[in-house]
Amino acid sequence: MTGFLDLYSEKDTFLHRLDPRVKLLAVALISVLAFILTELLYLVVLLCFILLLLVLARSSYGKAFFALKFVVRFMILITLLWPLFDRSGAPVLFSIGPLDITEPAVWRGATSAVRVGCFATLWYILMFTTSQRDLVRALVKLGLRFDYGLALAISFRFIPTFGLTIESIKDAQRARALELDKGSILRRSRNYVSILVPTIVYALRTADTLALTLQSRAYGAFSNRTYLREIRMRASDYVAMTVVVLILLLPALAKYIYGVQI
C-alpha cells in the first residue's frame, strides 16, 4: 500500500462546498497559467498561492504531509536531472567529467520544478476536497453519458473491496507456501498470476451478480431518468468561476497582448 485509498476527507470549507465542475475548471485553468509563466519568481508566487489553498482545504496533517513529500521529492528530482540534458548557456558552474553544468540550466531546472509542483499540488487539493461521488456527478453533468457515469461510480465503489480481496487472496496463497518477495522481478510477476487469477474470477462473478442487481432495480427502463441529488451552480460558484478565469486571463493578456515578460 502506498498511500490513502481515499484522499478525500469530509470537511466544511469553501473549497469543499464549491461546485466540483468549478474545481475541475480551476485545476485546468491554473495548470494552463503555470504552463505559460516562464519567470521563476511568478511561478513561486503561484505555488505559494496554491499552497495557501492547500492550507485552506484543511486536510489532515498526515495527508498533507503525504502529498508534500511526493511533490518535494519530485521537484528535487527534476531540478537535479534538468541540467544534465540542457547544457546551453554560460557561465559553466562546474563540470562532472564531460558534463558541464551551466547556471541558466540550473535556473531553468528550478523553474520547471516549481511548475510541476504547482500541477501536482492542484490535483491534491482537488482530491482532498472532492468526494468521488461528486466527481462522477460533475462528469455526468459535463456530458458523460449516464451509463458510463454509472460504470465509473461502480468502479470507485469496488476499488477498496477488490483491494481487500487481493490482500486476502495473497494470504491464502502464502498459506500454500507461495513466496511473493523472492526471486527476480520476472519470477515475482509470474507468482502474482496465482493471486490475479482468483481475483479476476471473483471480480467477474461480482459483475454477473451486479448485472442482475442493476436490472432488478430497473436500470435503463426509462431513458429520461431523474436524479435524487443534482449539483447546481450557486452564486458563490459563479463568483469563484469568475475569479479563476480572471486569474488566468489577466496574466495571459499581460503576456500576449502587452508583451510583459512574466
Binding site: 451509463d147 458510463y148 454509472l150 468502479s155 465503489r157 469496488f158 487481493i166 448485472a211 442493476l214
Partner: peptide, 18 residues
C-alpha cells in the same frame, strides 16, 4: 455497465496494490 465498472475497479486496485 457491470463488466466495465468491475474491470475498471480491478485495474485500479491491482495498479495500486501490486
Amino acid at each position: 455497465v457491470a463488466l466495465y465498472g468491475v474491470l475498471t475497479a480491478l485495474t485500479a486496485a491491482i495498479t495500486y496494490m501490486t
